[in-house]
Design a protein around this nucleic acid. Sequence first.
RNA 1: GCGGGUGUAGCUCAGUUGGUUAGAGCGCCAGUUUGUGGCACUGGAGGCCGUGGGUUCAAUUCCCAUCACUCGCCCCA
Length: 418
Amino acid sequence: MTILQPVRGMHDLLPQEHQKFSYVINTARQLAAQYGFAEMATPIMEFKDVFKRTLGDVSDIVTKEMYEIADRGDEEIVLRPEGTAGIVRAVISNGLTQSLPLKFFYAGPMFRYERPQKGRLRQLHQIGAELFGVSDPVGDVEVIALAFEILKALKLSHRVILEMNTLGDDESRKRYRHHLVSYLRDHHAHLSPESQLRLDRNPLRILDTKDEGDKKILKGAPLLTESLTPFSQEIFLKIQEGLKSLQIPFQLNPHLVRGLDYYCHIAFEFTTTELGSQGTVLAGGRYDSLMATMGGPSIPGVGWAGGIDRMAMMLQEDPLLSSARPLAIVPMDEAFDMKGLELAQTLRKEGYMVEMTYGGGLGKRLKKANKMNAEYALILGEKEISSYTVTLKNLDTGEQTQLYQNDICHQLKNKGVL
RNA sequence: GCGGGUGUAGCUCAGUUGGUUAGAGCGCCAGUUUGUGGCACUGGAGGCCGUGGGUUCAAUUCCCAUCACUCGCCCCA
């Protein structure tokens, strides 16, 4: 038990859980396609630089949460901690920027060296969508709409809240940072130690502190909205109007921020209270300067990433998820097993879900058929073989009928067995 | 990375004020039923009491460490 443990923060996805995973991914995949987001996949490993450039040298993700791989060469290689940087890198390295806009969807594992908790694994899984080359707020709305529809399709939309804020353009943010820092400096002594640190490094991050003392101080702090340029204000209003006209509910949260410099304008998060402190289910924003920061052309982008693990956890026992009931092939003796498997193959070709039963006599095999939740059993014994028939038994009612082996699919359909 | 909690059968959990063979329910296997399952009854298998060390005549129980999980912080999806 001890030695055979998985690596810390890595989980096995057993069938029951995997089913939920697949359900989340497939639902998202299907909707993304409908919205014109083309699925792509980038490598799980990237040069460290890809993330250093995009996430910045100071962010926690880069400074302490990356899995670095000992490469045989001297390259600094890491397991990707998030998806956007890899997509942007791929867009640049493959020269995809010739025809815009670009819309991409992805799903896959990410790795962060954090202390594990429920809903926070070291190997986490995300779905994500990115839209490049559209600076119009309608693009933001479309991207958010996709996220909302996915959550809705998963029946989670009424259990999450969409919180939104704007970070404005560079000028707005610069102005605001100045106001905020000068306000907080006056209260420096009363701030929490974390916030005191962030005051120099990343003052905007103080806004979403969980420290009660900090929160009190922040009540009197200047708001970002007050520093917004008219242009930034207009953009934010357009997004809000767009969401309203698509009937996507949202709440403004002036304290919602992003720590990274390339983020601008909209920042949004779908959050829940059902998962304890790991409440963010899906989050995103606009990152107009990211592509240029990485050394590509200056192309605006907006996108989001959603936590599959967290969404799967919120999924109720959905009847859609419970697997369909198979037909069970029940040879009465091992001598008829091969005959049974042939029958199984015939039926599978017609699209039936068929399970073989192995070992034991009729009683034991029916028991097994029952356990696999089969609706019908197809029994093959001495009598059946000699008369070229199969006994069809309804395992719910116990009712039995004889079918001819020839053209069995047709007879099954006549019996209403689909 | 910081602080708290937990770790006994496949699962959910009792229990041992330190003392021979550690229990229950569910699940699993078998039998009652060798051409008829579910239900019922009877029986059975399954535990280095997370791991390592210490204290002790004796540790699953007490102490320390460690690993994993978990709650909060940090951070984030």
